[in-house]
Design a protein around this nucleic acid. Sequence first.
DNA 1: TTGTAAGCGTTATCAA
DNA 2: TTGATAACGCTTACAA
Lengths: 340, 340
Amino acid sequence: MAEATIRDVARRAKVSVASVSRALNGLNNVRQATRDRVIAAANELGYVPHAGARSLSLSRANALGVVLPDLHGEFFSELVRGMDREASRRGYFLLLSNMHAEGDQAPTALRAMHGRVDGILVMAPHVPPEMLEQALPSTLPALLINAPVEVPTRPSIRIDNEAGAQAAIRHLVGIGCRRILHIAGPEENIDARERAEGYFKAMARYAPGIEPLLFPGNFEEEAGEAAARDMLSDRRGVDGVFAANDMMAIGCLQTLRAAGVQVPDEVAIAGFDDVPMARYLSLTTCRVRIAEIGERAVARLVDRLEGKIERVLNERHQPELVVRGTTAGANSDEMAEHGL
Amino acid sequence: MAEATIRDVARRAKVSVASVSRALNGLNNVRQATRDRVIAAANELGYVPHAGARSLSLSRANALGVVLPDLHGEFFSELVRGMDREASRRGYFLLLSNMHAEGDQAPTALRAMHGRVDGILVMAPHVPPEMLEQALPSTLPALLINAPVEVPTRPSIRIDNEAGAQAAIRHLVGIGCRRILHIAGPEENIDARERAEGYFKAMARYAPGIEPLLFPGNFEEEAGEAAARDMLSDRRGVDGVFAANDMMAIGCLQTLRAAGVQVPDEVAIAGFDDVPMARYLSLTTCRVRIAEIGERAVARLVDRLEGKIERVLNERHQPELVVRGTTAGANSDEMAEHGL
DNA sequence: TTGTAAGCGTTATCAA
DNA sequence: TTGATAACGCTTACAA
């Protein structure tokens, strides 16, 4: 049998479709007896309202589009988990569309969302802003997550990468590191660029006169391994490593340890993100509460959809330095307490 | 300005809406000149078809509903990643709805999908089958992932937990373990139950006469730690551990090692899942290719939606034993090669 | 309090 | 090859 429609219910309850709609949506201009009849009929028929038709009529879909690049494990799930949590709290569905980093999939994915979502959450750390601006349907409210730059006209939420990097360097210097190497992320990635920027600024500030050392990476574990091998062949006096993300920090850590280098005694290591593995390897890192970012993103978008005006347009998520074994030198706590 | 509709395009191109629809959808019964005019007009107006209206008219939404419980990190993202990959390949969107383990959210979530998706993928390892069957809209094609039992009328995809458990035990016995402890998962979880079942069967088969040892757990790391503490206080001759998932295996491993127990020499440990961390900790485990399950699930559902009949109704995903350091005894490879 | 009917933005049928 | 027009399933004026 085909699914029952509102007309079937109306027929069965011997009322008009309008009354069915009113009764089922809890409007008060309907007699109790009528409402009861309608509800009974709906139950008997196993009637479920057709969300598509409903949203066409109401011109709102109660769904949010989520456009993400190919993300690495934890980052993806945490982000979506946070979004989902807040979305279901607010009564919205999430419509997912991964766009693969390359290609011109972004515009396509965004267009296809028109008419099925009320707003979109876009994460595109690699897409140039003008391309993004062009691809975004002008009428569809959007919130940008980690966009390469703050598009002035679009609300956004970003990680405060510089603050995180500064905290990490400050801490490394605080436990006595001087020649600190930065394993950088991919150049086209805004987070990577900002973390490097934070590194340079922090070095100038906390370790003035000491020349910064950069090793180019790509956020993959192998890059950290490569950096470690490089150090093993020519140490250049490096006594600290700040990697642009945890995976590279982990690669570096494992390779150094395997070669017999004492961490943190000879070389201290800090990462960025606080992936679950960081805790197991006791890696010092800048914690990014990804789920929280997802929640905030949804909350802000829904607020806007529901007419609440925003005070802040561009929000920054503050990472939190988590000190663990890879930097926990003998007297680190004490030194940290003394402000450096 | 409001979004342009098909009527605006029609007006601008001086044709009927029917022609616009035909032209834009690539039907061939439209003159080239007309098509050009329509396309030009559409571009000028920045016209994007309204997916909701389209799907109402076509009575198909090009979207799949995904109903998942609260999953732990890697499992969730891998599953969704696999689904998304296949879905975008096939031209479908994913509509996400986490249902939280408790509550009667399942029926609600499922109902709300009516009219916005063409089929649903449901994962509900904890929901009793009759409740599930009742909640599933009878007209909406569904594919069950890890359902508690194979509902005969519903296609499903499951992990072959028994096979995985048997392989693990066989391997442990093969490297010389005899008194093997099983750290079980939650009782209401079908995977956990099947893994325990596999453990019992395999013990009877590969270590006949040796009494099985069970420690109740809940898939959380802490349960593994508790099991380890239990062993530390009373070893009972345990020389092998098979945990129902990696997290518990990891908890056990860390706690034993911290207490100075040599793994694998004194106690060998194997888990289940092959979470990313397993590789770092060199944990032997049964690999479940989660993304692959997601892909298969989408592929099968879409096939069905598109009229391809299925030969297999209930499919089992075969885990693969991955031997690593926590069981790699001196002569394990050799013994494994000799078939035991 | 109820019913009739006009939308919402498409596609598809049927004539022309 | 085109255009009117009736669906699709719902909500909501407007009338009664």
